[in-house]
């Protein structure tokens, strides 16, 4: 009982802290200076239609590299906790409908995912969304057959390949453009505005992020599906 009162007091305190923030919050009418700089730079310097992509991949590229590292760490944690070799579970067969549909939809979902991460600089979407979409395709396969075994060597190869190349593209910036250019996408030609092959290395980097996210989350789902 006394614990519950303390919890309520803590929450009420939190609400009281939030109220001044809500009351005094004034919404901007214009973009801040930094944001308009990003929008202008996305058009003039990077040839990227999707400003969110240019912020993620270029202006805050180091941040994204950190996020991918966090993702890798959580995958390593899940793999460490659930490392026991999964025994073949005796389960009821999943329904005919799910099995047929998963085989039919698998390829389509993978294709949509690849489309989303290769067009990340033109349309809404990008590596993170495309990677998650690819994972849902594998999730569908696992739902249809729990005892499904993946080819781990391919999965691990894709994961390490995309991670290594992501860092290497960043280092190419150092080598080609000089000291301040880690993860600078202008190492490749910028192309025409609004075309698929434009925006320098942004589509390449985002595709690598997509593969990385897809393979990491597939590993997580595979480990958890065995339990």
């Amino acid at each position: 009982m006394i614990k519950r009162i303390f919890i309520l007091l803590a929450l009420v305190g939190l609400v009281l802290m939030f109220i001044p923030f809500l009351r005094d919050f004034d919404f901007h009418k214009e973009l801040s200076k930094l944001s308009s700089q990003y929008v202008e730079g996305s058009i003039n310097d990077l040839n990227t239609q999707n400003v969110v992509t240019s912020v993620i991949v270029t202006y805050r590229g180091l941040d994204t590299l950190g996020e991918v590292t966090v993702l890798f760490l959580t995958t390593a944690g899940v793999g460490f906790l659930l490392r026991k070799k999964k025994a073949s579970l005796k389960t009821r067969r999943s329904s005919e409908l799910l099995q047929t549909a998963s085989q039919f939809l698998f390829v389509l979902i993978i294709l949509t995912g690849i489309f989303i991460f290769t067009h990340g600089h033109l349309t809404p979407g990008g590596g993170f969304q495309g990677g998650v979409l690819i994972t849902t395709a594998f999730l569908l396969l696992i739902l249809a057959d729990v005892n499904l075994k993946f080819n781990y060597s391919i999965l691990h190869f894709v994961e390490s390949f995309s991670g290594v190349f992501y860092v290497m593209i960043g280092l190419f910036g150092f080598l080609i453009l000089g000291m301040n250019s880690f993860l600078d996408p202008t190492i490749l030609p910028l192309g025409n505005y609004g075309k698929l092959l434009s925006a320098g290395a942004i589509p390449v980097i985002y595709s690598l992020i997509g593969l990385k996210v897809g393979s990491e989350l597939t590993t997580i789902i595979d480990k958890m599906g065995g339990e």
């Binding site: 901007h28 973009l31 801040s32 930094l34 944001s35 990003y38 929008v39 400003v51 969110v52 912020v55 993620i56 805050r60 941040d63 994204t64 996020e67 966090v70 993702l71 959580t74 990008g126 993170f128 969304q129 990677g131 998650v132 996210v213 989350l217």
Partner: peptide, 14 residues
């Protein structure tokens, strides 16, 4: 503003 969208995009996956 594109910056909050970019932050949330990665935060969802993490």
């Amino acid at each position: 503003d594109p910056i909050p969208s970019a932050l949330v995009l990665t935060a969802i996956v993490i």
